[in-house]
C-alpha cells in the first residue's frame, strides 16, 4: 500500500511542475488559437540557460527562474513581433508549421552552443529527500513543485483579477467583439504569447533539476504537454493543472508497474483516449451549440 501511495505522491510532485510547463501552452492556444509546437523547445532552452547560470555562477537552479522567466518573456515578445504577428489570420496548418520551424531553430541553436549531449543540473540537495511518515519526498521535486504552484497561483490571479487578464480572456473568446470594446487585440496577443513563453522560463529551470536533457528532448516534452492540455481541455488553465497531475501520476504508475520502456507512450495513449471518448477534455467548455459559432 505504501508503495502505491509513494508512487502517486511522486507523480503528483512531478505533475505540479508539468502543470506550470503546460500552462503557457494552453494559455496561448486559448487566446490565440495557436498550438505553439516550439513550447517544448523553449522549455529545453530555458533548462540549458539554467544549466549555464548554475555552472558559471553556482546560483541555485530554482532561483535561476528569476532570471530565465523574464528572459523567456522577452524572447516570447520578440518571437511574436517578428514571426507570429504575421500569421494571425492564417489557418491552423500555418501556425503549426511556423512554430515547428521555430522549434527546429531553437533545437539547432541549443546544439550549436551546448553540443548535442545530455546535460543535468545537480545542486547540493539533488540526492536528498524528506521523509513524511513512511513516504519519501525527494527534496528537488518538492521544491520544484512548490515553486510551480506559487507561479501558477500568480498567473491565475493575473488572468481573473486584472483588466489585462479580462482583456486576454475576452480576446480569446471573440477577438472582433473585444476589438469593439476598445481592447487592443494585437498588443493583448503579444502580451499573451510573451506570458505563455515566460512560463517556459520558470518551467525550464524547474525541470532542469528533475530530468537530464539534450537538444532533441523537446519532442518528448511537447508530446507530454499536448497530452496534458488535451486531457484537461484545450485552452483551459484549470484543466491543464488537473491534466498535468493525472499525467504525472500515470507516468509514475506506468514506470513502476508496467515498464519504463513504455512511459513515453503514456501521453500518446492519453491523447487518443481523450480525443475519442471526450474530445473537449475533462474541463473543456460546453455551451449552447445551436447558435452559429463566432
Amino acid at each position: 500500500m505504501t508503495g502505491v501511495i509513494q508512487t502517486i505522491v511522486l507523480g503528483v510532485l512531478l505533475g505540479g511542475v508539468y502543470a506550470l510547463a503546460a500552462s503557457g501552452l494552453t494559455l496561448v492556444f486559448g487566446v490565440m488559437n495557436i498550438i505553439n509546437v516550439a513550447h517544448g523547445a523553449m522549455l529545453i532552452l530555458a533548462a540549458y540557460l539554467t544549466f549555464a547560470i548554475w555552472t558559471h555562477t553556482g546560483l541555485d537552479p530554482i532561483l535561476a527562474a528569476l532570471i530565465t522567466t523574464p528572459a523567456m518573456f522577452g524572447l516570447g515578445w520578440l518571437i511574436y513581433q517578428l514571426l507570429i504577428r504575421r500569421i494571425r489570420q492564417a489557418p491552423a496548418s500555418t501556425s503549426v508549421l511556423l512554430t515547428f520551424a521555430i522549434a527546429l531553430m531553437i533545437e539547432g541553436i541549443i546544439g550549436l552552443i551546448w553540443k548535442g549531449v545530455f546535460r543535468a543540473v545537480t545542486p547540493g540537495y539533488f540526492n536528498d529527500s524528506v521523509k513524511v511518515g513512511s513516504i519519501y519526498l525527494p527534496t528537488a521535486r518538492l521544491y520544484a513543485c512548490v515553486t510551480a504552484i506559487a507561479i501558477l497561483v500568480l498567473l491565475w490571479l493575473l488572468l481573473t483579477r486584472t483588466w489585462a487578464g479580462r482583456a486576454i480572456r475576452a480576446s480569446s473568446q471573440n477577438p472582433q467583439g473585444a476589438m469593439l470594446m476598445g481592447v487592443d487585440v494585437a498588443s493583448v496577443a503579444a502580451l499573451t504569447f510573451a506570458i505563455g513563453v515566460a512560463t517556459t522560463g520558470a518551467g525550464g529551470s524547474l525541470i532542469s533539476v528533475l530530468y537530464p536533457f539534450f537538444p532533441a528532448s523537446h519532442y518528448q516534452w511537447i508530446s507530454r504537454l499536448l497530452g496534458i492540455i488535451v486531457l484537461g481541455g484545450m485552452g483551459n488553465l484549470t484543466g491543464a493543472v488537473v491534466g498535468a497531475l493525472l499525467m504525472g501520476v500515470a507516468e509514475n504508475i506506468c514506470a513502476v508497474y508496467i515498464s519504463v520502456q513504455w512511459v513515453t507512450a503514456v501521453p500518446y495513449v492519453v491523447i487518443f483516449a481523450v480525443l475519442l471518448l471526450r474530445p473537449r477534455g475533462l474541463l473543456g467548455a460546453r455551451t449552447r451549440e445551436d447558435v452559429a459559432p463566432a
Binding site: R169, Q176, M181, T287
Partner: peptide
C-alpha cells in the same frame, strides 16, 4: 463611437455580468 456588430459580439465563456462589464473596458 461604439458599434454593436451584426452577430456574434459576445464572449461566450464569460458570464453575462462580465460581458457587460467588458463594455466598460475603456
Amino acid at each position: 463611437i461604439v458599434q454593436v456588430p451584426q452577430s456574434n459580439g459576445i464572449f461566450p465563456q464569460m458570464t453575462v455580468r462580465e460581458n457587460v462589464l467588458m463594455g466598460g473596458y475603456p
